[in-house]
Design a protein around this nucleic acid. Structure first.
Length: 267
DNA sequence: GCGCAGGTAATCT
DNA sequence: AGATTACCTGCG
């Protein structure tokens, strides 16, 4: 069991911040969560002031500490916010406890390809169907997110059961390219932002928004600034249509997350 | 039944 | 370059 103050790690806020699709409440048990990431899973409990992760200190050090981005100092980032920016100041306060999860690039690529024109619950359903149908079996009836080869092997017929709609060919193409070695997405971790962006945009069904989400949540490129309809709305309504993320160069993605969470919850 | 949901790509002007 | 539109599917 590893305990962390909720002000540093708030699972409920993270789950609602739209960056991951495999974090869910356990029904009937208040404050209890299940978190799935690639081929790992974790149970957790949230009380008034604390988040308790149900794993050993070793498991925490080996994986979850990095996954939750716990070594980054978010307080110093919040301190960089323009004090004259009332919206962002309030957003950061409201979002206390949100962190940018360091998720698996492949899982993020597929999840955000699926995300287009879908609601968050619908995205979750798709990701869960893919995992249950094609992902490696784990204890307790859980499933890993399927690897590229597993989705490629499923083929169009297999994927047809997962409510992908017109995104099905996009998912299949990405799986085939990644499985065939044509797109070595894990080796892209060491590429500079420009090259990584270019590679991501080369996938059919990946445009600027999806590419930026994959950069931010899958490759830890904390300065990526995805603009979706919510961010667009915030910029239009609170910044008269103009917001320059380069003001927060180096951590704009965290600022984006605050704007998104506050804008979606309070606007 | 109809419009829409955290976008993209093709097809206009 | 910028604007417009179709696209699967599930839900209100």
């Amino acid at each position: 069991m590893v305990c962390i103050e909720k002000e540093r790690l708030d699972l409920e806020k993270i789950a609602e911040s739209g960056q991951c699709f495999r974090m869910s409440r356990i029904e009937g048990e208040t404050g209890r969560w299940r978190i799935q990431a690639a081929d790992k899973f974790l149970f957790a409990r949230e009380s008034a002031g604390e988040t308790m992760l149900d794993c050993s200190r070793d498991e925490f050090d080996a994986f979850w500490k990095d996954y939750f981005d716990l070594e980054r100092d978010y307080e110093s980032i919040v301190a960089e916010i323009d004090p004259g920016d009332a919206f962002l100041t309030a957003a950061a306060e409201y979002s206390r406890g949100i962190r940018i999860l360091r998720q698996d690039p492949w899982e993020m690529l597929i999840s955000f390809i699926i995300s287009q024109r879908k609601s968050i619950p619908a995205i979750r359903v798709c990701v869960e169907k893919l995992s249950e149908a094609f992902g490696k079996k784990l204890p307790q009836g859980l499933h890993a997110f399927p690897k590229p080869e597993e989705l490629a092997a499923a083929g169009a017929e297999g994927l047809a059961t997962c409510s992908l709609g017109y995104r099905l060919p996009y998912v299949l193409a990405a799986a085939e390219r990644a499985a065939g070695g044509e797109a070595d997405i894990y080796s892209w971790k060491k590429l500079p932002n420009e090259e990584l962006t270019e590679n991501l945009l080369s996938f059919p069904g990946v445009g600027p928004k999806v590419a930026n989400c994959v950069m931010l949540f899958g490759y830890g490129r904390i300065d990526a600034f995805p603009v979706d309809v919510w961010i667009r709305r915030v910029i239009d309504e609170k910044y008269a249509g103009r917001f320059d993320p380069s003001r927060y160069s180096g951590f704009a993605g965290i600022i984006q997350q605050y704007m998104f969470y506050y804008g979606r919850g309070k606007l």
